[in-house]
């Protein structure tokens, strides 16, 4: 797998794992654990979004000249995902199990269809068109290395 696909897809999987653990904690009514996992989920997800919105997307837009293309769609979905994430956080804070689990399911389904589009369309395209500017990307995205290691 090429560097961009590899790095960003791995972040998706990592966030999924934290999400699954948090959901599990909520179902067990283990609220302290749920809160701490929610914080981790929220931090990692928002970091991933900003990696894309401030690193990958602008570079992609600049290189391809597509301002209103796929990146615009992804930004729009991030807005909704942030909203859902916030709603999960509120529910966990309020220890409202049904609302937390129902919103978590909603977040998860919407997130999965979002991730599929990024992983199957956007990242492979980015890997093709951004080959020459990978060092620039690593300046903006913490942890990203052009070699994909």
């Amino acid at each position: 797998m090429a560097a961009i696909s590899e790095f960003f897809s791995t972040q998706h999987r990592a966030c999924d794992r934290v999400f699954e653990k948090m959901e599990e904690a909520v179902s067990r009514d283990d609220w302290p654990q749920a809160e701490s996992l929610y914080k981790e989920l929220s931090r990692d997800t928002l970091q991933h979004f900003s990696n894309e919105e401030e690193g990958l997307f602008p570079l992609f837009e600049e290189t391809t000249g597509m301002q209103a293309g796929p990146t615009q769609v992804m930004r729009g979905e991030h807005v909704e995902l942030r909203e859902l994430l916030q709603r999960i956080g509120d529910a966990v804070q309020a220890r409202d199990r049904d609302e937390a689990l129902g919103t978590a399911e909603t977040f998860f389904l919407f997130l999965q269809q979002h991730n599929v589009k990024e992983e199957q369309v956007l990242y492979p395209m980015a890997d093709q068109v951004l080959q020459g500017v990978l060092p620039e990307l690593s300046d903006k995205v913490p942890g990203f290395t052009p070699s994909g290691e």
Partner: peptide
Amino acid sequence: TRYYTPNIHE
């Protein structure tokens, strides 16, 4: 603007 939408379990 925010508006309420039932979650998927609802």
